[in-house]
Design a binder for these strands. Sequence first.
DNA 1: GTCTATACGCGGATAGAC
DNA 2: GTCTATCCGCGTATAGAC
Lengths: 201, 201
Amino acid sequence: MSGNTTRQEIVAAADDLFYRHGFDHTSFAHIAEAVGISRGNFYHHFKTKDEILDAVIEKRVADRVAMMERWEIAGSTPEDRILSFVDILIVNGDKIVRYGCPIGTLTSELAKLNHTARGEANRLFGAFRTWLAQQFTAAGQAETEAHRLAMHLLMRSQGVATLLNAFHDREFAAREVELMREWVGAVLASNGDRARSAKTT
Amino acid sequence: MSGNTTRQEIVAAADDLFYRHGFDHTSFAHIAEAVGISRGNFYHHFKTKDEILDAVIEKRVADRVAMMERWEIAGSTPEDRILSFVDILIVNGDKIVRYGCPIGTLTSELAKLNHTARGEANRLFGAFRTWLAQQFTAAGQAETEAHRLAMHLLMRSQGVATLLNAFHDREFAAREVELMREWVGAVLASNGDRARSAKTT
DNA sequence: GTCTATACGCGGATAGAC
DNA sequence: GTCTATCCGCGTATAGAC
């Protein structure tokens, strides 16, 4: 909580570079250049590259949590909030075309590097997973089913991101987003039916 | 076509290491050690690392094409063949848990490295895409719809692979594979209805 | 806190002997 | 075709002056 601006700048620059070029391929020199400081100064803030990675993951988690809190405020119903998640694929379309999903690609890379921060990185997926499950639960789904639906939606989002990055086909993404929106609507509508019939009987 | 065994061994070892540790992270020393030759000897077969990458991509494409040809023989109907594709997620489950999808992860990495072989790597996805589209067409789907269905299935396969790699949850994968099988059945059944009604009217 | 200078190993790549 | 020896740049990391 020392509020060091330089440290925050380093983390922000590393976050961006790790996303665009990957963790392993990004060097201290790259980050130092992006921030505008010398390489030596670097080690006053972070002793190892892994420490920077931890800080970047921490920042990414915080950013995603903040985003989900905004969705909570903006969306009046659980369905609206879930659709905010789906819309990431459109809102961040340009970046995904170029660099893929920030969470999926980091997770994949750390898995291949067999990096110790693998588990930490999974908190990113976990944040979305539990949040989505909460929304489905709020929409009337049973606990286990809500978690399955959350995983299904996360899965489709990842799949679309991967193929959008490979094929650069925005129409494909738009089509799949529309299918996801329809799927969410159908799932929650049929549940509503069950909920209503359960009430009336 | 010189039939050099050493060359093939290098490509096979590189294929494996690129998959398990990533292209960038795999060094000449790693490959040389895996094959059991010296680093110097290496350059008699490949002048640059990129040449090895090209050869690995070529091998991967050939392997996948051969696999799809086996599916053509094994499956009597287009639906059977499509389900062979879906079942990769189960058959290769262990490897996917550890290293993800060989195609998706390579594509993502090359995108981040902004590597020239990016386009070549996309032939891997392309091979599955066109083959799946052919199967959907053979099952009675219209040309454009067949391609959309192929992309949809490829998307789901990628999404499942990514989350399977992240969460190591085999039950999740089994559940999603079952959903994909149902989806394939439903899509082809409804099409069959349309085809039948078109015939009888 | 920020800098310069530097250590040291590993990466890709080359030369040339056998 | 296979080897050893070697070049050179870049990577992480450290020491120490300002």
